[in-house]
Simulated scan of single mutants.
Amino acid sequence: MADELRQGPNAGRTLPAERDRYADPETGAQVTRLTSDPDADSRHLYFTEPGWYDDGRRLLVRSDRDGTQQLYSIALESGEITQLTDLPAEISGVTRVATEPTALCWCADRLVALDLESLAVTPLYELPDGYTGSIAAGTADGARAVVALSEELDLEGRSNDREQWIADRMRAGPHSRVISVPLSGGEPTVHVEEDRWLNHVNASPTRPELVTYCEEGTWEDVDRIRALNLETDETWLVRPTDDDEAVGHEYWLADGETIGYHGWRGGRDDPEAFFGHVRYDGADCREWPAPDIYTHFHGNTRKLVVGDGTYRSAPFDLLWEWDDDADEYRTPRKLAAHGWSGDDDVHPHSRLSPDGNRVVFDSSRGGTGSDVYLVEIPDDRDELPAFEGVAE
């Protein structure tokens, strides 16, 4: 790689807690606002990525509090904030390697590994000219980083309409690859290469040979959820879609064999929204009604699922609890308000903690920019108000 990548003097500095606790006025659930710097935009990792570490005592967050986006850690007991990176360019695409005290991220055009204990940074791979990289994924054995690379096109940034930009880029068919890079150092392996927009790799947390990646685009026009066996390079569609169906926002459950997602049937103007779970090989596909198509879902197991609600009349986290006797989900419960107000507003990207007792989400409700919130799930979920509505 061209130049050595060094941490600046702020790596490892600690900042005082910014947290504030309150009871959600509608549900009574206990909420902790973890960040509150009025001049900063702070967010937890994307909802597919495992941000908790140190046996659940710390949470990774991204923040631009010094003018450039860097990685921070919040000690959940004290609220103290530690800056983990002070790199010469903004970091992006952050994930954590499940079996190691290691985070992966992009620093400009370099994929790097960060030791979360020593804060040492190791460059792993440099993007070829004219390509962008997806959020990284760390394999379950901690051996490899897997990413999707996609060709940059002249239309980049041309349209202020995000949906139109996505459609234009999809139709252009940018050259893409899915590659893996050894964390111990070495040359990358190309596993998939196509002239279509490939994006967002997610690694099974238990099966080191399994990852998903997506065919990116407007969901109605792609078969999005694809799986890859890194040992054989075999690829397959996980949840194929009919002409009137769309699915996406895929993530792995904790067993490393089940994939969650959501989607809809029909058109966007009058959709039949649903969320679902399917085995990585396409077996045992089950789906249930969702309040809207504009949302995200996450669960560690089928027993409990959190959804973002929707900015269309349900701006709060919702909990679905599985009823073994009825073999179905109970009526969802409101957990906490996040105030998500539109596609241009901060998306909650809600995610359950590894122990299933808390939910982290982002929100702009505290002022300008985004802050990170953590809400406790009551032991008796019947204390929470039921959500009976359907988004308009």
Rank of each mutant, 00 (worst) to 15 (best):
A103K: 02
A148I: 08
E126H: 08
S150I: 01
G130H: 03
H175D: 09
A108W: 09
C105Y: 09
D154H: 10
L114T: 07
A172S: 12
T99M: 04
D109N: 09
L149K: 01
A140P: 01
L149M: 08
D168I: 03
T139G: 00
A148M: 03
L153E: 04
E163M: 15
A113G: 11
L119M: 12
T139E: 00
A113F: 03
R110D: 04
R171I: 10
D161P: 09
L116K: 12
I166E: 14
V112C: 08
G173Y: 02
V121K: 05
G133S: 07
C105Q: 10
S134K: 06
I166R: 13
A172C: 10
S134Q: 03
D154T: 12
E100G: 06
E152Y: 05
I135P: 08
D161V: 13
N160H: 14
E126K: 05
T122S: 11
L149I: 02
E151N: 04
Q164Y: 15
V147A: 07
V112A: 08
W106I: 00
A172Q: 07
W106C: 10
R144S: 09
W165V: 09
R144D: 07
R144G: 08
G133K: 08
L149A: 06
D168C: 07
Y125Q: 06
E126W: 08
G142Y: 05
D154P: 12
E151M: 04
A137K: 01
